[in-house]
């Protein structure tokens, strides 16, 4: 009898071992492993066309807390001085020639290519998504995420998370109807110093842009604190002074 109970318990644990995994905690851990709460970083965004031609952008980003992100384009010359700001669901773009910030939406793209604004000005995943379900798939967990509100760019995400590092390896972005919009591939895990070990390359492709892909390469991620007033429309034209 005791043997039967033990066997049943073992069977239950083997059948659904991920019930032991707290999805929300795992998602928080993924967020913290991808970046500190407040940091500055440099990245290069590359749009690659089917024949291999490329267009590159160099982008400086600062983030504070869970929902304040701002960015400054450093190159090429045609984009230099453009800044972007995100406060929760609110996004703005400042173009030096236009001389004032204008609101943009998360589904637009300030750089063209496959990345849209919500990819470039991404917040912590836990800010925008709830974990609906966690599955175990070999060396990875599969997190099924559902957007908390309708203002989030993708209604659902499927996130594959490496068990050993609590870092994502792949994320599929889906519409409410379950249509695949794009896939994000996390590659080349690198030590950025200060305890930050994360993928240095984020590659994306989309069935909507067959043959095209966009790549984001992180060169530097450094913990840094900022005042809240950095993340305001007034400061957007002055972002260069932060570097």
């Amino acid at each position: 009898m005791v043997g039967t109970i033990i066997a049943a318990l073992v069977g239950i644990f083997l059948a659904v071992p991920v019930f032991a995994v707290d999805g929300a905690k795992l998602l928080d851990q993924v967020d913290r492993n991808l970046s500190p709460e407040s940091y500055e970083s440099y990245r290069k965004i590359i749009n690659v066309e089917p024949d291999g031609r490329k267009k590159e952008f160099t982008y400086y980003t600062v983030k504070k807390g869970r929902e304040k992100v701002a960015g400054l384009f450093i190159a090429p010359a045609s984009e230099k001085g453009r800044t972007t700001l995100r406060l929760g669901d609110n996004m703005w773009l400042y173009i030096p020639n236009v001389g004032k910030p204008v609101r943009i939406t998360s589904l637009q793209s300030v750089v063209g290519g496959v990345f849209n604004n919500s990819d470039i000005l991404s917040l912590d995943y836990a800010v925008e998504y709830n974990v609906e379900k966690v599955e175990e798939q070999g060396k990875e967990y599969l997190l099924h995420l559902k957007a908390k509100t309708r203002t989030v760019a993708y209604d659902r995400l499927r996130m594959w998370v490496m068990k050993d590092r609590s870092l994502p390896s792949r994320i599929e972005c889906l519409t409410e109807a379950g249509m695949l919009v794009k896939t994000l591939h996390f590659k080349d895990i690198k030590d950025f110093g200060g305890g930050i070990v994360r993928p240095a390359v984020l590659e994306t492709d989309s069935p909507l842009y067959k043959g095209y892909k966009s790549v984001m390469i992180f060169a530097k991620i450094t913990k840094r604190d900022f005042r809240d007033e950095i993340f305001t429309l007034t400061f957007m034209p002055k972002m260069e002074s932060l570097r």
Binding site: Y42, K44, T58, I74, A75, V215, A219, R243
Partner: peptide, 10 residues
């Protein structure tokens, strides 16, 4: 893909 931080020196 390569990205050298010296490219972004201010």
């Amino acid at each position: 893909y390569t990205f050298d931080v010296s490219e972004v020196e201010k």
